[in-house]
Design a protein around this nucleic acid. Structure first.
Lengths: 147, 147
DNA sequence: CAGTAAACTTGAATGACTCAAGTAAAGGAA
DNA sequence: TTCCTTTACTTGAGTCATTCAAGTTTACTG
């Protein structure tokens, strides 16, 4: 299924801007809105930043994109949707890297007690230093995660 | 150990504003900055919002408070620090509730692959609807978490 | 091919937070 | 106790990502 079909299936109109967004996000690595905007403009000429915001919202509502919002850094988007994966986020440069869930049956995704909540999603972010930033700061190898 | 001692131990000066912040946060339930500010003013009279921001930062650097930053809602604070617990966040009203880690040995807190990152923390947020919001929206009981 | 809803444009507004410069006060030293 | 230095606090302006609003254009239906 190509992007145009996927858009239609989500009840969205097919426009050059949206196709360019999908291409840009899928070709990039957890890009932020500004980077996506740049990519879109390179592909199809001037598109307003607001159109990009608007479309990104529509695309994520339609489950064509996934939004990642690490505390303290701007929102990023990826095309890998509908699967069970999490993210490593670099505290220093903000880089985001995918990680599969640590265990197949995802124990952490069912809270110990749901306190009466109707839980529909679990978000896991591992905070740390990415390899380039470790090299620059001279951090020793390997640490153990704390909850 | 009382709050004043704890402040001194963290290398911070003891002020009425800071004591009031600690009391307010510990007496409240994952309050946001505005609510903390209100609580502080009730206790010790006018304190500027910036002083509250400043102190909250100092207190969290000194590990007297923990900061919770759910995507799309303002930062909240709690006094429960240094343990292994996560949060349920209501998509509708933003309410935050503590959950202990699902499993003692915390499997999700060691990523399947660390991609070379030096991981120092894992943040887990369960998104859903809190009981009052479920009642208001008439959502059916229980759903299964998706990663 | 026309009509209409959705998408896009421009421009202003918002909200949470930070920065900056000056004043006040905590707590160690004299 | 008083002085002095450093940290905390005040006021006020600034920033950044994001949203809102109103008008125009364009994709798709009929």
């Amino acid at each position: 299924m190509d992007d145009a079909e996927r858009l239609r299936e989500a009840g969205l109109r097919v426009t050059a801007a949206r196709l360019a967004i999908l291409q840009t996000v899928s070709g990039g690595d957890h890009l932020d809105v500004e980077a996506i905007h740049r990519g879109v403009c390179e592909r199809v000429g001037q598109v307003s930043l607001q159109a990009v915001y608007d479309s990104l919202n529509a695309l994520q509502r339609g489950a064509l994109l996934r939004r990642i919002e690490p505390a303290g850094s701007p929102t990023r988007y990826e095309t890998r949707v509908g699967d069970n994966h999490h993210h490593l986020v670099c505290r220093r440069c903000g880089r985001v890297t995918d990680v599969d869930c640590a265990v197949g049956h995802a124990p952490c995704l069912e809270p110990a007690s749901d306190a009466g909540y109707l839980v529909d999603e679990a978000d896991v972010i591992y905070w740390g230093l990415c390899p380039p930033c470790r090299a620059e700061t001279g951090s020793a190898r390997s640490g153990s995660a704390r909850a």
